[in-house]
Write a protein that binds this DNA or RNA. Structure first.
Lengths: 246, 246
DNA sequence: CGTCACCTTGAAATTAGTCAATGGACGTGG
DNA sequence: CCACGTCCATTGACTAATTTCAAGGTGACG
């Protein structure tokens, strides 16, 4: 395996990505050490609503979302669709990919965006060779699994209002992590169909529920824009702890 | 890394466990190599319905179930309960534990049983030092995540009949993996409350649905005993591929 | 023989889904 | 600038699935 001295000053592709500051990417870049110039395979752009990969497909890469929103989903024989998770910039789209060459869920863009590919064998090698990469990845997997479990609880045992309130709050919290300050207004590109498919409801019922929130002046979502008017009440409906600073 | 000839004949605790043959445990024992006598910390017995650990608790061990059935669950403020997964002999009860000292779901026995504890730092060291252990564990994590995602789809987008049929079939398939032959009758210790909490239904509705299955002579579940009378029909209801040998 | 956990059944209430029609926003091409 | 198509959101009336409430039954076990 030839390893000619890489030109040190050459920028690695993701150094310019908005997500570069997230720990998720750092542990891979840092772990890869000298071979870091190699691990980033390629960048690709994607249109809104484009399906990047379909469940069951062969896939030799780990995908990281750089710009835009996306989601992982499964479609059923009856034509129904279930969204398993939403993906925001910086998210690993295929967290278990290092250990399998088959993808078990489909991936679709919500907005237009950009993502990059890492060869899964390279990632696997980095994980097995670097303790910090392994623990970083382990934490990420753990978080992701806890999110799935939370959703399972929400969909299994909570009302429509609770589900929607929790979905929105969880996304808002993720958005704020990157911004490191709390906001009340967001660009929010999910359609009511997206929300329905993520909460196990019908879009009609999502529409009605959002209307209730709007009329109670809790939050209003329209035209890809979300405004939270009563954060405390929203947390109360979601059965979540309100933030300390409010 | 010293590898003194270990006393070959000395039995390790889990060598006598019924689950010892599962790959899940092998990758840890094999990976641990010479230190394998150390990694198995301790065995404990548990009574039926005993709660082993509560969500949010500090936990320095990875738990492996040796005998009996158990489940991981979360309880809500309203008194509701959601079961995230059922655990059968040989299952790792805390798969992400190597990377965290806090457990995010509670664990409760369904039947009486026995389990063993592995220090999580030992497991982590094995994972980072042994490629086969890492890939084995990665596969396991991936399977577990896919199961969670399947449940999410089931609960979000399927009817009560489908959910129950799928839950039963998935458990039956796991039971058959160990037995390596397909059966039609099983000892099945889950109560209707368990099934309800795992499918997001009420026990009343589970009772009615099981009655429908009984009257249609598809399967009958009573007194901790499950008999499948029409495997093909059960697969059809579950929207799953029927087994080839039937 | 009583108790406890578990299961069953019926009737009423509620939540969420289905069907169907309408309207708004936005981009595209004439 | 307008006409058109497409995607998205809304509304009402109706229906279906599931929950809730309440009561009673069964089986195991000390």
């Amino acid at each position: 395996m030839p390893r000619p001295n890489p030109p040190v000053s050459r920028a690695r592709p993701c150094d310019t990505c908005p997500h570069r500051s997230t720990s998720l990417c750092n542990f891979l870049l840092d772990g890869a050490g000298g071979s870091a110039t190699q691990i980033w395979q390629e960048h690709k752009t994607a249109r809104s609503r484009q399906i990047l990969y379909r469940a069951g497909t062969h896939l030799e890469h780990v995908l990281v979302l750089c710009e835009g929103w996306a989601h992982r989903f499964v479609s059923l024989s009856g034509g129904h669709r279930m969204i398993l998770s939403f993906l925001l910039p910086g998210d690993m789209m295929t967290a278990t990919a290092p250990f399998s060459d088959r993808i078990s869920s489909s991936i679709q863009m919500v907005t237009a965006g950009r993502y990059c590919l890492l060869r899964r064998v390279d990632v696997l090698q980095t994980l097995s060779g670097t303790d910090s990469a392994l623990t970083g990845w382990g934490q990420h997997i753990k978080t992701q699994q806890e999110n799935l479990e939370q959703q399972l609880v929400d969909i299994g045992r909570r009302s429509a209002e609770e589900r929607i309130a929790r979905l929105v709050l969880r996304i808002v919290q993720r958005l704020e992590q990157h911004e490191s300050q709390s906001k009340r207004e967001f660009s929010f590109p999910l359609t009511q169909q997206h929300i329905a498919d993520a909460t196990g409801l019908t879009p009609i019922h999502v529409s009605r529920t959002l209307n209730v929130f709007r009329q109670k002046e809790i939050m209003s979502l329209s035209h890809s824009f979300l405004a939270i008017h009563n954060m405390r009440m929203l947390h109360h409906i979601a059965d979540m702890e309100p933030p300390a600073d409010d």
